[in-house]
């Protein structure tokens, strides 16, 4: 019984210590803020492995494939970094060109990548209305025949 009381006292003390310690750390006034972002780095090289230093870069966002979202140049190592707009999920296209050589890379960003083109399918409203119509039709038909039997 005595051991049990000591254990409970010890646990309470430990818990109190845990609660106090963070407050002491915070009391020094240090504060760190952070922003989560996904930086994309590309490295452009010729087939020989030579970096495409100074090559022209054009970045296209998923919502506007015709106009570059960002332009720039690769560094001496052929590197180029950018932070895509997180509100524009889908495939980001990056084109790199230099002296008649070029290539394009397609980078999926976020969930639910945007699909190019249109499928010509039904809208959600159309699907719901059609479902209601089908249910109504089946129920009505069933009621009609059940009433005739009665």
């Amino acid at each position: 019984m005595c051991i049990k009381r000591k254990l409970i006292t010890g646990l309470i003390f430990t818990l109190a210590l845990c609660l106090v310690l963070p407050m002491q750390v915070y009391a020094h006034g240090a504060r760190i803020e952070y922003t989560s972002s996904t930086e994309i780095e590309i490295v452009a090289k010729y087939d020989t492995g030579e970096p495409m230093g100074g090559a022209q870069v054009m970045v296209y966002a998923p919502d506007n494939p015709s106009t570059p979202w960002l332009t720039g140049v690769c560094d001496d190592e052929g590197r180029f970094t950018f932070v895509p707009d997180s509100t524009k999920p889908g495939t980001w296209d990056v084109q790199v060109r230099q002296a008649g050589h070029g290539d394009m890379v397609h980078i999926p960003v976020g969930e639910g990548a945007v699909v190019a083109g249109s499928s010509g399918g039904y809208s959600v409203l159309q699907i719901v209305l059609m479902a209601v119509c089908v249910v109504w039709g089946i129920a009505g038909t069933a009621l009609y025949f059940s009433r005739r039997r009665a």
Binding site: G120, G121, Y122, Q126, L129, M130, C133, V134, W136, G137
Partner: peptide
């Protein structure tokens, strides 16, 4: 009701 169902369904399929 069934007539309306047929008309609405036809229109929706046509639109889609």
């Amino acid at each position: 009701g069934i007539a309306i169902l047929v008309v609405v369904g036809t229109v929706l399929i046509g639109c889609g």
